[in-house]
Design a protein around this nucleic acid. Structure first.
Lengths: 258, 258
DNA sequence: TAGTGGTCTAGACCACTCA
DNA sequence: GAGTGGTCTAGACCACTAG
């Protein structure tokens, strides 16, 4: 509680980790909730800047005079809430400030609008599967034939940001995609077809184990799910897209009034 | 796997609960993930229609030949994912079909568009606080003076659906609001001012303990967070709104092309 | 190899619901 | 009071990371 600044030594990232205190237990409130509240108080209160390593679970448990599992439960909740981040075999850290990347609605692609702000976007292809036209649920009247399912990961500033999927006619799928631009920017460059973002649908869901692995988050963490359709200038469906986006880094802004 | 129908007896809700099987463990996959996968297989595969009560945690644990805590961990994940629902002292149940209420973008209020589909919407006032104009962050140029913060819960078909907050000039806040219509529908009826939905921002977050209590869900469950501004016909800000919406029941559809 | 988080067990007690 | 989910403990072992 002394008013000294956070004068951390060179390279030091350990400044003032929360240590144990006797918890004031209230009737009807679970112990792990108390631990969670106490940790939140200490972390959010700013005593521990982002990146600070928390004491080990064992020592936290000892400090609180409780079981390690109780501490783990509190930490798991905080991780799902985006307050801390755990690394297996390394430790638990205060999360970087959840800078929410505002994605203002516009007809430009994400990569383009981010580039305008000096942010780097990288796409990494995860899986490309080609399916005969019969199987895919979406229909592409003007481009009959096989469809391609393109799974890729988008990263912003080297941080995993979304797990995305695009289903589009094989004839339009980019070849030798290097990921420096969006697949649709590439499509326009290759074919001259203008891509327009049409319907968008928003929901949320818990991260699956697969989501978690690719997005470097914990299973169960809330994701913003954006699905939609891209069309050409005439309004014909070009592609069906789905993004599983890290909610702690995303805010999708739409202007309903034009 | 037999093809019989789900001829449940009168009042019976117990048809074919998943019982224990020896789990095929795979290297590197946690036991609770296997349990989760097995339960999901059985439930989603349709062997157990919504509302069916699962066996108790103790008997599931015995059936799987594992510890109760392992089963609990699997069930907690499924609950966060909206697959099952637990009731303290009663049991665990397969969730009602996650009918995603599509909220097509339109200028009508939620209550109105839902009423058109024969769905009932009920608003329940949780808290009304009046604040002097100086404190509230939003500014309402045309209506100076105190602002009112209106917290309410919206339920669809008797199911909690969103925890909502509206901040608007005290002069416009509805008096004696009975909750049968949206506060803004009421505002239009009272004052004749047309309310337009302007900017909307979408994100997701984990349910806090408070969210969880009001929405009848589990802490940590993903919520769709919709914030925005309502304006009058001239585009002046009328109110700032925020909805914490149950993601398992929501899909917010926006048409970007007009 | 030491330290960390990840998983799992066995058992206990409590809080809640309902017959 | 029986049965259910909710919490908590003590202790064990594993998987991963880094010096």
């Amino acid at each position: 509680m002394n008013g000294e600044g956070r004068d951390v030594g060179p390279g030091a990232r350990e400044s003032r980790p929360p240590s144990g205190t006797p918890l004031a237990r209230r009737a009807g409130v679970a112990l792990y909730e108390e631990v969670k509240a106490d940790l939140t108080r200490r972390l959010v209160a700013g005593e521990s800047p982002p990146g600070v390593k928390l004491p080990s679970e064992a020592s936290l448990a000892q400090g609180y005079g409780t079981n390690r599992l109780t501490v783990r439960r509190a930490l798991a909740d905080l991780a799902r809430g985006g307050v801390v981040r755990t690394e297996h075999g390394v430790g638990t850290f205060v999360r970087e400030p959840s800078v929410r990347h505002r994605i203002d609605d516009g007809q430009g692609s994400l990569s383009e609008s981010m580039a305008e702000r000096g942010l780097s976007v990288v796409h990494q292809v995860i899986e490309v599967t080609e399916e005969p036209s019969a199987t895919g649920p979406p229909e592409f009247p003007r481009w009959p034939g096989a469809t391609v399912r393109l799974r890729h990961r988008r990263s912003l500033e080297d941080t995993p940001w979304s797990l995305s999927e695009a289903v589009l006619p094989a004839a339009l799928a980019p070849r030798d995609w290097d990921g420096t631009e969006s697949p649709f920017t590439r499509l326009t460059r290759d074919t001259g077809i203008a891509v327009r973002r049409a319907r968008r649908s928003f929901s949320a869901d818990a991260a699956t184990a697969d989501d978690a692995r690719w997005l470097d988050i914990q299973t169960g963490t809330p994701l913003l799910i954006v699905t939609g359709v891209n069309t050409d200038a005439e309004g014909n469906d070009l592609a069906h897209i789905q993004h599983h986006t890290r909610a702690d880094r995303t805010e999708y802004v739409v202007n309903l009034l034009v």
